[in-house]
Design a binder for these strands. Structure first.
Length: 291
DNA sequence: GAGTCGTGGTT
DNA sequence: TAACCAAGACT
């Protein structure tokens, strides 16, 4: 059963994989790790220019570790979820202190780094070091949901059943497993997308349980929509945008202009300080964190 | 386990 | 146009 998936998907990957900079040999484990942080909830097209900038500026973990965390936040630009920049900086510090400046090869040691969870630990171990891990991201989950389980979409949160399935489908051979991880993810990213699934281009359309069932529509509760306008997140984004552009401490009065409602504005700024994304100074001044 | 956390392109 | 979506992590 499983070989009927592995072989065509990997062959398709060999023919259609995108030439992404973090897939080139010269990227190395650090390049893979940086890309994985940036790609969390963020499209490839927006990551590409920032990735190139980061790797040119900080080619090794120790280079980033020497910087102020605020510089990482500034260089993050408008990628979104700027706590990732802080965590990546923290991971670089930990790698420099605990692992001699080299991205660890061990899954448990990767998982212990800030900003690295179940997915990213498996992804770095697999993509950078060729190890055998179930790499279960939103693309792979969708491919499995359709091809194997026969439903349009996976559950909102990753389930034990999905993890078990991913382990069962993992090729025994280490190199093949790593190839399969990248290939199944790419298939979900390019062909078996959330909307407009491209069955005509799919290498496993003939075996796809969902297609064979007549592509039944998703049942159950609507898949959570995330509103943004008017939320604290939007206010945080506006505040941080001002601080990213500034190269000197910013007075409170300048920050006050980004949002009219004072209670929400104060709550958002306080949250940024709590998260370590903003450093308050004496005299009502604010800046990106120096330490 | 449900909420929170950015941003911009696509439909 | 409002909603959906994009290689999740953390509390």
């Amino acid at each position: 059963m499983t070989e009927k998936l592995h072989t065509p998907v990997i062959a398709w990957f060999d023919a259609h994989a995108r030439d992404l900079p973090w897939r080139r040999p010269e990227a190395g484990p650090w390049g893979v790790m940086v890309s994985e942080f940036m790609l969390q909830q963020t499209p490839v097209s927006r990551v590409l220019p920032v990735y190139e900038e980061w790797l040119a500026r900080w080619p090794r973990p120790a280079d980033l570790a020497k910087e102020a965390p605020g510089e990482a936040v500034r260089a993050w630009g408008r990628l979104g979820y700027p706590r990732r920049a802080l965590r990546l900086h923290g991971a670089a510090v930990a790698i420099t202190e605990r692992h001699g400046g080299d991205v660890p090869t061990d899954h448990a040691q990767l998982l212990a780094l800030p900003g690295i969870g179940e997915y990213t630990a498996a992804a770095v171990a697999s993509f950078a070091y060729g190890q055998r891990h179930a790499v279960l991201d939103t693309n792979v989950r969708r491919v499995f949901a359709r091809a194997v389980t026969g439903v349009q979409y996976p559950p909102n949160a990753t389930t034990a059943a999905e993890r078990r399935l991913a382990r069962e489908l993992l090729p025994a051979d280490e190199k093949t497993a790593a190839r399969w991880a990248a290939a199944s993810m790419e298939l979900g990213a390019l062909v078996c997308t959330a909307k407009n699934e491209g069955c005509a281009r799919c290498p496993i359309a003939a075996q796809c349980a969902w297609r064979l069932a007549g592509k039944p529509e998703h049942e159950g509760p609507p898949r959570r929509g995330q509103t943004y306008a008017g939320t604290d997140r939007q206010v945080r984004g506006k505040l941080l945008a001002v601080l990213r552009e500034a190269h000197a401490p910013v007075p409170q009065a300048v920050l006050d202009r980004v949002w009219h409602e004072p209670v929400q504005r104060a709550r958002a700024l306080d949250g940024l300080v709590t998260d370590g994304l903003v450093e308050p100074l004496a005299g009502g001044l604010y800046r990106l964190p120096l330490s």
